[in-house]
Design a binder for these strands. Structure first.
Lengths: 163, 163
DNA sequence: CCGGATATGTTGCGACGCAACAATGATCAT
DNA sequence: ATGATCATTGTTGCGTCGCAACATATCCGG
């Protein structure tokens, strides 16, 4: 029998790659990829979907790492600052940056959150953000932070549903 | 002395116009513009900035209308459904739709929230949303709900600050 | 190896949002 | 009018989200 690659082992590989990339990024930015931050990041990276801060908390607790909410939030702050996770404002949830696996994407992403499976895709939003800036400045508004979040149905869920 | 138009009376006029328009819109959509909904709407319409649900609650309490949070949320749901208020996902706050005063804007707005004064402007986002849809579909993602929220500095605050 | 900066632990709390059920109010057909 | 029906509001209660303030531990450069 050929050696099977289980989903689990593939997930582990993917997470490991993400952790390694995250570690590099922290180093590049002279930030510390501490144990706590790594643990929190692993929980987030080990699911495609976005997760709430308290879900991270619960998962870590089940693995024996009991934390106060504030500790998770501080870790999240560091991860957000490093850019290895993003925050979905419309869901108060966090997810791993897909650039850790696909460096090809543009600099400024838009977020596409599937309503069925929860997965979050990132799209290259450079053109969109340019349009937004032009639009805002036309009203003499100087933009600083921009959120573009879309919910809908991803391809997998759309095809699965029609079976 | 010439009859002065105070800010207060101008605000009252503006709110009244908004309430009247909102009432019409509710009627058009066969929804009921009840007392509660009108009161909640008045609080939101009487400020340019976005306000949280609990701030609405507090303001109404000070005027003698004591409500449970859920009542405010239910009124907000109705107001959102009618489209006379919007929700800022990035701030968990609500503000009156400016179309009640400026019917000229396009159908799908983007939100520009000033970080200094809290005011929320609406921009015509039709082109932006088209770009977003194209972008999403390029990834085989079928968009349904789209949020575009921008924070920055509005014109008034930018000029005021430089005095 | 010491002092300052950074990170984490502890305690506590405010804001946000709504579920579930009960009571009241509006609507409409008979 | 009146009873059935549906929408609205009241009441109670709770879970989630997010962080402030202060104490302690850890790291790192000089």
């Amino acid at each position: 029998m050929a050696p099977a690659t289980t989903d689990d082992s593939r997930t582990k590989d993917r997470v490991k790659t993400s952790v390694d990339r995250a570690s590099e990024i922290f180093t590049e930015k002279s930030l510390r990829f501490t144990d706590l931050r790594r643990k929190v990041f692993e929980e987030i990276a080990s699911t495609q979907a976005s997760v709430g801060a308290y879900e991270v908390l619960d998962r870590l607790a089940k693995k024996g790492t009991r934390l106060a909410p504030i500790s998770v939030y501080r870790a999240l702050d560091a991860l957000l600052e490093a850019g290895v996770v993003h925050r979905l404002e419309s869901k108060n949830a966090y997810f791993a940056c897909s650039r850790l696996h696909q460096p090809g994407l543009g600099r400024r992403p838009i977020f596409l959150a599937c309503e069925k499976c929860g997965n979050v895709l990132e799209g290259d939003g450079d053109d969109i953000f340019e349009t937004i800036d032009k639009n805002a400045r036309a009203q003499k508004f100087e933009p600083r932070v921009r959120f573009v979040e879309v919910t809908g149905t991803c391809h997998e869920c759309a095809t699965k549903h029609k079976e």
